[in-house]
Design a protein around this nucleic acid. Structure first.
Lengths: 86, 86, 86, 86
DNA sequence: CACTGGAAAATGCCGC
DNA sequence: GCGGCATTTTCCAGTG
């Protein structure tokens, strides 16, 4: 008897099932990514470099956003911009 | 001279695009997973323990036993668990 | 006008210097720790398990018990462990 | 009796002790760092921004090094530099 | 096939 | 007490 411990076993099971299902989907995508790298490699491309390129592109996007955030942060820190709560 | 690599270059771009697209899908799934954890938490469940359970279920019975055996061994070595013949 | 912040600016720089110095020390310790793990590994020990033991020792007896209890509870909920009453 | 399992219990204990000692030192440094942040905060500085500054400085150093590495990598990838074993 | 380095995941911490 | 961020741990591909 689980209920005596005060947890709703069915609900918990349902959450875990949902996560496991999503993890499975994730696993497929991960697999797909691996296969693309592998195909690229068989074409003679250097996968390490491809990874770098992709990570740089992701980064530069992220950093563009971050720069803005950072600027705001600094501005607020020195009183050049209002705090978030106005 | 770049052009001499024209065809390969297109091929490379195509690989990178495919990977980036897959990464995007992966990002969505990751987001979904986060949301389920968050919902579970709002129900009062402990997400850290949920993660442990999921990771345990992903392992084979054999793996689980091996890990436990080794951990017990090390624990006894440092006095965290009593010796077997204790 | 920056100068009006002159004194605070010096103070800030000083804080940052102190932190960076401490970070450097931290880096050395981290390096030392890595080396011990590496040596342990070369003796045939399993570093992952060592980490677990160390993390267990850092916890109080009470904490360890609580975690285990909760894990058992969740495990039973998903059928990874038998119910207590069979 | 541990030896029957084939691990050198004393050696293992010694490694773990060394690591725990280093962890303790690390903990002190971490504590020191916290205190500096706390002092800075009491002076009215924004700790989040300080963290950013420090992490940026650490990063730009690392990235200077990385850029070089990356350039080499790309060069090798397109045959403009010899492979490492060259 | 063990080691190393780098990506991904988990944990812990800080501020709100 | 929660959400976001930094650290730490785990995993995995590539390399010798």
């Amino acid at each position: 008897m689980i209920e005596q411990f005060g947890i709703e076993s069915d609900q918990l099971k349902s959450f875990i099932d949902r996560i496991e299902r999503l993890e499975e989907e994730k696993g497929k995508i991960l697999q797909d990514i691996k296969e693309v790298y592998s195909e690229a490699k068989s074409w003679g491309f250097d996968t390490k470099t491809i990874r770098k390129v992709i990570s740089l592109r992701a980064k530069s996007e992220r950093e563009r956003e971050e720069e803005e955030t950072l600027l705001d942060l600094y501005k607020r820190a020195v009183g050049l911009a209002p705090d978030l709560e106005g």
